[in-house]
């Protein structure tokens, strides 16, 4: 793709042109070697225009069946009502060995088809073992250039849940009535501690009790020093919309807190470094790691590149290029 087309594409993304956003996401999903350079130039154009700063990147995670999609749909409506634009990346783990996948969660999102202030894209995990596909962080960047809030929805199991932490500013964990296990996992350090905890399905029996139990467990988490700050617990019923306003408020207040302490920019930088390192090892293996001088050296070089405003792909491709 010539540079002029990429600049036009970047412009289209920033204008929230549906076809442009879709084309940009197609590009970041493109696995061909020829696409890598184009992705770098597209992101560079977006970065130069300041489109990759600001905004809010939110991860919504939790076990299967807790109603994440319904919650994301309700949150999307709530944010829209408040005048926000919203892009959703629904990461679907249902890939099977055939290589195929069923991306069925859209059934519950059902956005207004004429509203260009929302955009929903599902991504198959493309056979990655645990962990998010490399296109996820790139997709988040593209969507964040177009929409005020980017929501990444993923099933909270294993590596993918740790990965999502690295691409979002605020991590929301969704639990449902009767599920007390989550807190045990956090305590044991098996699971990321979220920034906001949601108990969904408040229309069900048991819900009040679960909220009470989780509140107790959260305070013990803090007492044990595992959670530094007070984790807000929001009780919602995604189905009838109860509590979704409070969730939006909790997200906004977390963002404000991050922005005021400078943690927003630092968190994004750290996330990008972590991604770049993993992507490098995945691409070049242990041998590549040895050639750049080990993990510590890699971290330094990657962090330097990120600070210099380079794209992750550009950095990892450049590290082993003959010139460097």
């Amino acid at each position: 793709m010539p540079d002029t087309s990429l600049v036009a594409l970047a412009r289209g993304v920033m204008d929230r042109d549906r076809a442009a956003v879709a084309a940009a996401l197609n590009l970041v999903e493109d696995r061909r070697a020829s696409a890598r350079g184009e992705v770098v130039r597209l992101l560079a154009a977006l970065r130069k225009a300041g489109a990759l700063e600001g905004g809010h990147r939110v991860g919504v995670t939790g076990p299967p069946g807790v109603g994440k999609s319904t919650l994301v749909a309700a949150l999307m409506r709530e944010l829209r009502r408040g005048g926000e634009t919203v892009g959703v990346l629904a990461v679907d783990p249902s890939s099977v060995r055939s290589g195929g996948a069923l991306l069925g969660d859209r059934t519950r999102i059902a956005p207004d088809p004429d509203d260009t202030g929302v955009f929903v894209r599902s991504l198959a995990t493309a056979g990655e073992l645990g962990g998010l596909a490399p296109s996820v962080p790139l997709g988040v960047l593209v969507l964040s250039a177009a929409f005020g809030v980017v929501v990444v929805e993923t099933v909270g199991v294993g590596q993918s849940e740790i990965d999502v932490r690295q691409v979002v500013d605020t991590l929301v964990f969704v639990a449902q009535p009767g599920s007390g296990d989550a807190l045990q996992y956090m305590k044991a350090g098996v699971m990321e501690v979220p920034d906001v905890l949601v108990v969904n399905k408040m229309d069900q029996d048991l819900a009040q009790r679960t909220v009470a139990e989780l509140r107790g467990a959260l305070s013990s988490l803090r007492a044990a020093g595992i959670a530094g700050r007070e984790i807000p617990l929001v009780a919602v019923s995604a189905r009838d919309g109860t509590g979704v306003g409070a969730l939006a408020a909790a997200l906004a207040s977390h963002l404000a807190e991050l922005a005021s302490t400078g943690a927003l920019a630092a968190g994004r930088r750290d996330g990008a470094v972590a991604w770049a390192m993993r992507a490098f090892v995945r691409r070049h293996g242990e041998l590549g790691l040895a050639r750049v001088g080990g993990e510590h050296a890699l971290r330094g070089k990657v962090a330097q590149g990120i600070r210099a405003g380079k794209e992750v792909i550009e950095i990892i491709d450049g590290l082993l290029a003959p010139s460097s």
């Binding site: 996948a101 069923l102 059934t107 894209r121």
Partner: peptide
């Protein structure tokens, strides 16, 4: 289609032509 290796977006029943178009475009 999934068995054949396609990624399949299936939205269930009762969708308008406009919703199908919007999904097809967004999903690429």
């Amino acid at each position: 289609a999934r068995d054949a290796g396609f990624e399949v977006v299936y939205e269930g029943i009762r969708v308008t032509p406009a919703q199908i178009v919007a999904s097809a475009l967004q999903e690429g």
